[in-house]
């Protein structure tokens, strides 16, 4: 890493000033929609209609709408009215009166269930996928067996299969699972169950195997040889030598897998629409689908739900962002 001219600090020129300005615009355009969700979640529906362009939360009720945007900025009493309530009402069951007072249409956002489902799915998928793909990566990077390259090439070729292509057969497979399989429904197998949502991502993804194999190849053989002399078997070498030495890429992969799993939509949308099992992405899409377009849509509810679903990912990203950022460019280049 010989970055002698890192950032090339050649001092200020007009060109660089303009470039910084453009960069600032890009950053603002990136962050603004996310801020806007929060701003709107903190507003009332009447407020959103009265001042759609107001930068701060608009916290007015029906009767005050005419007074416009400033109302929301004055006094504590008005501020507390909307702010918390939208987020509160999409997570928990608030009373119908409270819901309507906040401009809700009485529609039930049961976000807590969806949050829980998303967490269960993402956690189980991450643990399974990282562990099993690490096993596979060990076989490809550290063992030698006949047909090794062929099997690896086959795994990689799965990268070319578009999700929609395997969607139908996977759906049929999950639906037609025999009844002796645990957690199946008599009629529809694993449809509308958490195992059904988890299954296709639990055992492997080609990317995870490829990603870990690259790192395992880079671990020096000497440490492993020392372990062999100590009489360590493959399993012990895997858990006591490879896993600790590759803990950084394993952790990075775990974060990427968690985020990907959290964001997955097509598969859970097809197999898990029931309220008890649906994950956040499916729930969000469902809230939108149920909201009427013409008569007083509950925008603050939708925005509060959106905001709440983004929080776990944003927090995760804020803490482990460096790993994610550093991993970009890994898959495509080199």
């Amino acid at each position: 890493m010989s970055n002698s001219t890192v950032g090339s600090p050649e001092g200020f020129t007009v060109g660089r000033g303009v470039a910084w300005l453009v960069m600032g615009l890009f950053l603002a355009a990136t962050l603004f929609p996310i801020y806007w969700t929060l701003r709107s979640a903190m507003s009332t529906n009447a407020g959103l209609i009265s001042a759609p362009g107001n930068i701060l939360p608009v916290d007015v009720l029906e009767g005050e709408a005419a007074e416009g945007a400033q109302v929301g900025l004055t006094g504590r009493a008005t501020t507390t009215r909307a702010t918390g309530i939208n987020i509160e009402r999409v997570i928990t069951d608030v009373s119908l009166e409270e819901n309507e007072a906040a401009g809700g249409s009485g529609q039930n956002f049961d976000l807590l269930t969806a949050l829980r489902n998303s967490m269960v799915v993402a956690t189980v998928v991450t643990i399974g996928q990282v562990l099993f793909c690490a096993f596979a990566a060990y076989a490809f990077a550290r063992l030698k067996f006949r047909g090794q390259n062929l099997v690896f090439a086959l795994y990689l070729s799965a990268l070319m299969v578009p999700p929609i292509f395997s969607l139908i057969p996977n759906f049929l497979f999950i639906r037609d699972l025999p009844s002796w399989v645990p957690f199946t429904d008599d009629q529809f197998g694993w449809i509308n169950t958490l195992p059904g949502i988890i299954a296709p991502f639990f055992l492997m993804t080609p990317f995870a195997v490829f990603f870990l194999r690259q790192f395992f190849l880079g671990i020096s053989k000497e440490v492993e040889e020392a372990a062999v002399l100590d009489g360590a078997g493959h399993l012990r070498r895997f858990f006591q030598v490879i896993m600790p030495m590759a803990s950084a890429p394993l952790f990075t992969l775990a974060i990427l897998t968690y985020v990907t799993s959290w964001n997955e939509f097509l598969w859970p949308f097809v197999v898990g629409k029931n309220e008890e099992v649906r994950v956040l992405t499916v729930a969000l899409n469902e809230f939108k689908a149920q909201t009427p377009g013409t008569t007083a849509p509950d925008w603050t509810g939708l925005m509060a739900a959106s905001f709440v679903s983004s929080v776990p990912i944003l927090v995760l990203f804020a803490i482990f962002g460096r790993r994610v950022v550093d991993s970009i460019g890994f898959s495509g280049i080199k």
């Binding site: 929609p33 806007w36 964001n263």
Partner: peptide
């Protein structure tokens, strides 16, 4: 990191933000 934020958000959520905007 900031530039990567939209990429880590769920597509459905991104669609929702812009649906509103």
């Amino acid at each position: 990191g900031i530039l990567l934020v939209p990429w880590v958000l769920p597509n459905v959520l991104v669609a929702m933000l812009w649906l509103f905007l």
